[in-house]
Amino acid sequence: MTGTDTPMTPDNKAQAHAVRQAELRKRSSGRLMIFGFLSPTLAILLFMVAYPIFSLVYYSFFNFSALRQTTMKPVGLGNYSFLLSDPELWGRFVFTGKFVFICVALQMLIGIFVGYQLQKNFRGRDVIFTILMMPMMLSPVVVGFLWRYMLNSEWGIVNFLLSSIGLPKVDWLGQTNAALWAAAAADTWMWTPFIVLLATAAFRGIPETIYEAAEVDGASPAYRFFRITLPMSAPVLFIALILRLIDSFKQYDLFVALTGGGPGSSTETVSYAVAKTAFSYFYTGEASALAVILLVIIIGLSMILVRHLTKMGEKY
């Protein structure tokens, strides 16, 4: 023991213990205060998120109709086996997959290209950017009806332009393949501005000194784009991809306004089938099971993409 050391007397030990107890009480009160502020929000989230999901899963195991709430017959996995053995449902999954792939691919390609052009400073840039953002501000139902009038086989503006250059008219909404591309065009027109917005923000966040150093080293514009711009903005673009993928899988109101699920039921997405089963036929149990299947698919794809996003964030 040196001369500067203070011996631990009983009074010193009691004082140190009292200080520790005061610190513990202060931390506990802080935690209680934080929990008190968060508890209303947590309660709302628990009610608005957890309860509907629990109810959805619960009802999926019953032969249940919202019109006959007293007759809930447990069927186990019967609703799931019935749905997964339905060839029409697999057709809806195929159609939904095609729609999602076309929309997300077009929106990402066009959005990245336009965003890369808009990151540059030039006269009229803000005006062009504002105009491009306008479709995203509309309701999907409004967009659906707008494109429905534009694609009318008799007096729509699209067929008028085709006729003016000598091309035959196309029954855009009366053929399955044509209706698929029509819906993809409408969705792309509406949501590409979202990708443009995120891509422009990501590109403008890259330090200009990196481009200047690459230009001094003689890097070509293509090299700078693929080796600097895309890798450094990849996390933001990946988030945009995840959000658009999830939203495209849930697309319902656009098809209601644009095609009404026709011709026949060939343009019904899985979300459209859920709403139709639940609110047109009132087969609540089957609709709940179908919604759970769609939810599992979306969560699975999201988890895979988020895992890649996490690796990408660690890399860049």
Rank of each mutant, 00 (worst) to 15 (best):
M1E: 02
M8W: 13
T9D: 07
K13M: 14
Q15G: 00
H17C: 10
A18D: 10
A22D: 10
E23T: 07
E23M: 14
L24G: 12
S28V: 14
T41G: 05
T41N: 05
L42K: 10
A43W: 06
L46T: 11
F47M: 11
V57Q: 04
F62G: 11
F62K: 03
S65G: 08
R68G: 01
R68P: 01
Q69I: 05
T70D: 09
K73S: 09
K73M: 09
G78L: 06
F82N: 08
S85I: 04
S85E: 15
S85C: 10
D86A: 12
W90Q: 14
V94F: 10
G97S: 07
K98G: 04
K98P: 02
F99L: 12
F99N: 00
V100D: 00
C103Y: 03
M108F: 07
I110K: 00
Y116F: 13
Q117W: 08
N121T: 15
N121E: 15
F122V: 15
R123C: 13
D126W: 14
T130W: 12
L132V: 02
M134Y: 15
L138E: 11
V141S: 05
V142A: 13
V142N: 04
V142M: 10
F145Q: 03
R148P: 00
R148G: 04
Y149R: 10
I157S: 13
V158I: 14
I165L: 11
K169N: 02
V170N: 00
L173N: 00
Q175N: 15
L180M: 13
W181F: 15
A182T: 08
A184S: 15
A185E: 13
A185P: 08
A185C: 15
A186T: 03
T188N: 13
T192I: 06
L198M: 08
A201D: 02
A202Y: 00
P207R: 10
P207V: 06
E208C: 11
T209C: 06
P221A: 06
P221R: 01
R224L: 08
F225H: 04
R227V: 04
I228G: 03
T229N: 04
T229F: 01
L230N: 01
L230H: 02
A234C: 11
V236S: 02
I239C: 08
A240H: 01
A240R: 01
L241M: 08
I246G: 04
I246V: 07
I246C: 00
D247G: 04
Q251A: 12
F255V: 05
A257E: 02
T259S: 05
G262W: 07
S265E: 01
S266K: 05
E268I: 07
T269W: 06
V270E: 05
S271Y: 09
Y272V: 11
A273H: 08
A275F: 14
K276T: 11
G285H: 01
A289V: 06
L294I: 11
I298S: 03
L301M: 15
M303H: 06
M303R: 14
I304A: 07
V306C: 03
R307W: 12
K315H: 12
K315I: 15
Y316K: 05
